[in-house]
Design a protein around this nucleic acid. Sequence first.
DNA 1: GATCCTCGAGTTCT
DNA 2: CTCGAGGATC
Length: 670
Amino acid sequence: MATREIAKRAQALRAAIDDANYRYYALDAPTISDAEYDRLFRELQVLESDHPELVTAESPTQRVGTTPTREFATVRHRVPMLSINNAFGDEEVEAFDRRVREALDVEAVEYSCEPKLDGLAINLTYERGAFVQGTTRGDGFAGEDVTPNLRTVRGIPLRLRTDHPPRLLEVRGEVLMYKRDFEALNARQQEHGEKTFANPRNAAAGSLRQLDPRITAARPLRFSGYGIGEAQGFAAPQTQSGLLDALGRMGVPVSAERAVAKNVAGLLAYYRRLAGNRASLAYDMDGVVYKVNRLDQQRALGFVARAPRFAIAHKFPAEEATTELAGIDVQVGRTGAITPVARLKPVFVGGVTVTNATLHNEDELRRKDIRVGDTVVVRRAGDVIPEIVRAVPGTRKPGAPEFHMPTRCPVCGSAVVRLPDEAVARCSGGLFCPAQRKQALLHFASRRALDIDGLGEKIVDQLVDGELVHTPADLYRLTLEDLARLERMAEKSAQNLLDALARSKETTLARFVYALGIRNVGEATARDLAAHFGTLEPLMDADEETLQGVPDVGPVVAASISGFFRERHNRDVIRALRKAGVTWAEGAPRTAAQGHAAGKTFVLTGTLPNLTREEATELILSRGGKVSGSVSKKTDYVVAGAEPGSKLAKAEALGVAVLDEAGLRRLLKG
DNA sequence: GATCCTCGAGTTCT
DNA sequence: CTCGAGGATC
């Protein structure tokens, strides 16, 4: 064959393979068999290996993966990749529609509806139609460059199918794995003695984050596009649904389940249809997304902080699973609270394997009438903490006894008492109880208290059981030799712990008061007390009446505080701590707050780009503001970052002002 | 006395 | 995140 003919043949093979990929992945309508596909692919490989000069970056043979990289480079997004607010019920969707119609001042709005795929959001950059870069979402502002890995994903076109490619087009979508592909992959992994994945989403994430693209190439990843980022020289359609159609025509796989709804009733009908099909669809979804269809209306609506006002994700209810209740244990908390904990036969729910779930207290247990041996329904509440919803009727084992709270503490044997009108039962042993002593030490060392890095549960167990440490002050007497004798504690980590202890001595009055673990005195109250008294002595000697002069301190809290400081033992520990070198800046009592945020209440949600939660809190406090944990009518500002929680939705519902990090900084500067 | 708003405390898994 | 309960407010 003449060189020209070979080149032509290679060209024809590439076109045929690209076309097969397009029909398979984008149209979901394959026209040739897998065997025929493999034959074409091998012929092209042979041709290219005989004539290396014919190989191009866009050749389908180049999807097999190049050599591994050391790490992924960070790339700033040209247009931030935003998150979408969530709706958890019909009412919230109706409220969303109402807000949209009011803002646009129209009778009805048309929406584009799409499944919310459970995968990883990525950004694909095309220059003059050629795929040049792909990045992960990251924090929304910058992500990781995973171009070589994305190149191996066969559903991602290496070249857009159009005669007039835009100068620049960023395609946004989700990388995911089909359920059946995930199962096959796990079976294969298991066969080869390699680790299996918990769910398709984790499998997709793990596959995409491989440093060696050849591994990614062997994983059955898919792509589904849902929007665009930066676009230059692109005649954008007028609507979201038109945009999806246009992407589809250019060879980008888009969801076949997409639809257009004329009004809010259409949205809810779409939701019910997809929720009903959930099990039979090839992929996992965590809900559906509604977007105002007309792009000019989208622009008019704009953004609130980090999320578009023109879109909302309607989430499916938390997944439930059933398993057997293997037993009920009890735990002893810092305040002596005895909490029953369900031990479950491991069950896979909401993407993780759950073995424990809290039962809160005796009343709750009674209410749900749960007994050991019952089959129970488990769900991950708020998608995080597992809870037992109910027992499945008719699964009770004959003679299964009712659960009773122990009358003696399982750790120290002291009496368990439950005060009238209280839901929790408590061990009355106080600091005599090793469990409470351990928890008190862990609290003292916790990040928001004295922040002693490396003092974890395992170490505290040994220190207390070995009688090396009784009170927090004893921690500062520990030597390298003491620590090196402990299990799982080599010299290096022992030294690290000593360093952390030394560092922790420099603290603040608020942290110190919080670290003491006074009942009913948490972070916020400790801060109020520190600000009000300025130094420790007047606080220690204050009577209950004086204490009630502090904001948010009433009779109960005042009694806890004065009771704590009246105890001889507690005063001794405090003296010993100060003697060991624990210090803080002695401030004058702060009276009226000053600064640009004076008297304003802030609530933080999501991840801010340049500030940690603690830094943001510090910043607000230093300008006289207050930071609270929950949103209400009294909240002045909600500061929202990436992936905000339900607080953002609540803020919008209540009409509370929402700021992003930049807005917060501007406000604090004045 | 009722109601709303906050805070404290406990909790799971990777 | 959620529940329970303390504090503030009317």
